[in-house]
Simulated scan of single mutants.
Amino acid sequence: MQDTTDRIRTWAVMRGLDDADPVKQMLKLMEEVGEVAAALARGDMAAVKDGIGDVYVVQTILSMQLGTSVEECASIAYEEIKDRKGDMVNGVFVKESDLV
């Protein structure tokens, strides 16, 4: 995975995306997330996988634009959730503090 992420970074730098506007990159991220949702609705798993990959690429570039890394962001998120408790409600994990 690290090799793929490094290749994404190189690709982005070669195209000047690392210095582009992160607001525009965020819009691109929302577009890609929407494509994943549409593919799920259609049951098109090949498009779901492609879309999830696209989301990762866009997140990697967005993190570069913001002076951080996708790995650092994922590590921060994991540290926040690693001991989280909660329950599945209608197929969705709900953290304990949000359960009523």
Score class of each variant (00 low, 15 high):
L17Y: 09
G86A: 10
K85H: 03
D19P: 00
W11A: 04
V55C: 05
A46V: 13
K24G: 15
I76V: 11
I76C: 06
V48Q: 06
V55H: 07
L62M: 03
E35N: 06
L62R: 02
A77P: 09
G16L: 03
A20V: 02
A12E: 04
E35C: 09
E31R: 13
D98M: 02
I52L: 14
D87T: 10
M88G: 01
M30K: 11
R15W: 06
M30V: 11
S97N: 12
K24T: 10
A37P: 00
L40Y: 09
K82Y: 01
I81D: 09
K95P: 12
A12M: 09
G16F: 04
S69Y: 09
S63G: 10
M30N: 14
L27M: 14
V100E: 08
G51Q: 02
S63L: 14
G86K: 03
G91E: 00
A46Y: 06
D98F: 02
G43D: 15
M1F: 09
D18S: 08
K24A: 12
K28R: 11
R15G: 07
A77S: 15
G86N: 03
A41L: 05
Y56N: 15
A77H: 12
M45V: 15
Q2N: 14
A47R: 05
T10V: 13
V57K: 08
Q59M: 07
G16A: 05
T4I: 08
I81S: 02
R84M: 15
L62A: 07
D98V: 00
D44S: 11
E72S: 12
P22E: 14
G67Q: 02
A74H: 13
Y56R: 11
R15P: 04
R9G: 13
A41C: 06
R7P: 00
L66E: 10
A12D: 06
E71G: 11
E71K: 15
L29N: 07
G67F: 06
D44M: 02
D98E: 12
Y78W: 07
D44L: 09
K95A: 09
N90C: 10
D6R: 07
A12S: 10
A47I: 14
V36A: 03
V33E: 03
A20M: 06
A77I: 07
R84P: 02
I52P: 00
G34Y: 00
